[in-house]
Design a protein around this nucleic acid. Structure first.
Length: 518
RNA sequence: GGCAGCGUAGCUCAGUUGGUGAGAGCGCCGGAUUCAUAACCCGGAGGUCGGCGGUUCAAGUCCGCCCGCUGCUACCA
């Protein structure tokens, strides 16, 4: 039994009716970074991602492709698993909603909600457009000039009544509002919380939670004519992966309620309104936080197939490198806001922050150690005020990083770390160890030691964003594997004098444009 | 329409409860330097802080109006 505090974090499950795009990868990268950060900070972390494989869209996409839904799943889901691999995600589990464990879990939560009196059978009635395959509210429809009722798209609608099970969502309005009030950090960022509070305050209607018009889903227990509404199915994945309905199991007891569900801002409502209500109905606790991140835009434009600017995440990783891409999106985009990216922006970031600032700092200091000190970490002499100030800044990174990460402000954590990198370059230039080489070798040694120590700490703190590159950097300063957690930051883990270092090599290459027309 | 938020240097944005001369990064220009991945370091360039009016000894920072932009306004996910 671990004595560490637990931390359960999830991404939304991806809908694999197409191939992964950069938005999927972005969410996964950000969540991975948070998960890695917490692990290094001493938490027992459980990180879940996966795919949401049921629903009418899967069925329709499959039919268009002449496949069964199961065949479509078999074709597309591996691409999402490959993405997880390609972007170095450290997830502990990958759930597919078509797995048997998930059917069992979903039916169990359904039964619990039903036993609690929150599910009842009625008819779902509304204006349905066959062409749009969608229901519309009365006030979304209009009578056209031929007195035919049409939907917002101008397509004819007809009154349809379908038998359906309903969830008594209306009964949870007060409890939800109280929960939002008592847990101001439940919905983040704040702008999203305001929207949800405003929405729930406007009153909640019961929710139709079953369908009879198609069968690609999990059957309703005891009534095979119905399958579960996709969101009951999808949301439940978060507890399926902890072994639900075995609430006495090790995983469930340790990790539920979840600490953070990282999701796109478009599905906030399902997570911040329906999900807590479902859980309460089933006698379970609501998650502690739902964080809605923003969307990514390619040169300011929404990615869309018709515009032809959909970017393949695998291509990006191939072109710039996995770590550079991870760093770019997490540093450049304020987490929770929309972001924009372009070739120029990516190159600029990776060259400026990685190659010029951090990579060059390591290279210029370590190469002096190699050339002038036989590649051995020097013994520092008395520390000057400048040395002390530099070390104090490095030692202060963890606190700032933690503070930022408490609120999933990933970009602020990186800002804090790179501010120290910038200061280290200023320190190095001001101390000019290359000039001290002849005038005061002992002083040069001290400057190089201080700089190496800063590199060590920065590298430890860079691991959540760039696991591979940070590891190589740590190799260069000969930090053993068991001294790479945040516990080794600060005075606790100073670079040991006398330690032999490997020959320095560049870790962050500059991106150079391929020769035009070559 | 209603509710919420935003509009600060070329670009992306910081700017606590109103108060020394309005900031950062990138881009740009100039300088210095050569330890280093033509990188780093120093300096500069001077933006009506969306517009108008008001409160105040004092407003980017509060109030009102206007202009522009964005999000939410339930069962497609």
């Amino acid at each position: 039994m671990s004595q560490k505090p637990s931390f359960y974090i999830t991404t939304a499950i991806s809908y694999p009716n197409g191939v992964p795009h950069m938005g999927h990868a972005y969410e996964a990268i950000a969540t991975d970074c948070i998960a890695r950060f917490k692990r290094l900070d001493g938490y027992d972390v459980r990180f879940l991602t996966g795919t949401d494989e049921h629903g009418i869209k899967m069925l329709q996409t499959a039919q268009k492709a002449g496949l069964t839904p199961r065949e479509l799943v078999a074709r597309n889901t591996p691409r999402f698993e490959a993405m997880v691999e390609a972007f170095d995600l450290s997830n502990d589990d990958f759930i597919h909603t078509t797995e048997e464990r998930h059917a069992r879990s979903s039916q169990a939560i359904w039964n619990r909600m039903a036993a609690n009196g929150d599910i009842y059978k009625s008819t779902y009635a509304g204006w349905y457009s066959v062409r749009d395959e969608a229901y519309y509210a009365e006030d979304e429809t209009t009578l056209n000039d031929q007195s035919v009722r049409v939907g917002p798209q101008g397509t004819p609608v007809e009154w349809v009544e379908e038998e359906s099970y309903f969830f008594r969502l209306s009964a949870y309005q007060d409890r939800l509002l109280a929960y939002y009030r008592d847990n101001p950090g439940f919905i983040m960022p704040e702008a999203r919380r305001n929207e949800v509070v405003s929405f729930v305050s406007g009153g909640l209607q019961d929710l139709s939670i079953s369908r009879t018009t198609f069968d690609w889903g999990i059957p309703v227990p005891g009534d095979d004519k119905h399958i579960m509404y996709v969101w009951v199915d999808a949301l439940t994945n978060y507890i399926t992966a902890l072994g639900y309905p075995d609430t006495d199991g090790e995983l469930f007891r340790r990790f539920w309620p979840a600490d953070v569900h990282v999701i796109g801002k478009d599905i906030i409502r399902f997570h911040a309104v329906y999900w807590p209500a479902f859980l309460w109905s089933a006698g379970l606790e609501a998650p502690k936080r739902v964080f809605g991140h923003g969307f990514l835009f390619n040169r300011g434009e929404k990615m869309s197939k018709s515009v032809g600017n959909v970017v393949d995440p695998f291509d990006l990783a191939q072109t710039y490198g996995v770590d550079a891409i991870r760093y770019f999106f997490l540093r450049e985009v304020s987490f929770g806001h929309d972001g924009s990216y372009s070739h120029e922006a990516i190159v600029n970031r990776m060259n400026a922050d990685l190659a010029n600032d951090l990579g060059n700092l390591a290279q210029r200091s370590l190469s002096m150690v190699a050339k002038n000190l036989d590649g051995v970490v020097p013994q520092p002499g008395p520390l000057s005020p400048e040395d002390e100030a530099m070390l104090a800044l490095a030692d202060g990174m963890l606190e700032k990083a933690r503070e930022a990460m408490e609120n999933q402000a990933v970009h602020l954590y990186l800002n804090a770390v790179w501010a120290v990198v910038a200061e280290a370059n200023r320190y190095f230039a001001a101390q000019a160890p290359w000039a001290l080489r002849k005038t005061d070798p002992a002083r040069m040694a001290t400057v190089l030691w201080v700089t190496g120590e800063v590199v060590r700490q920065v590298a430890i703190l860079a691991q959540p964003v760039m696991p591979q590159s940070a590891a190589r950097l740590l190799d260069l300063v000969a930090v053993p594997p068991d001294a790479r957690s945040f516990a080794a930051l600060g005075a606790a883990g100073r670079l040991p004098a006398g330690q032999a270092l490997p020959p320095p090599v560049g870790v962050f290459p500059r991106y150079v444009e391929p020769e035009a027309g070559a």
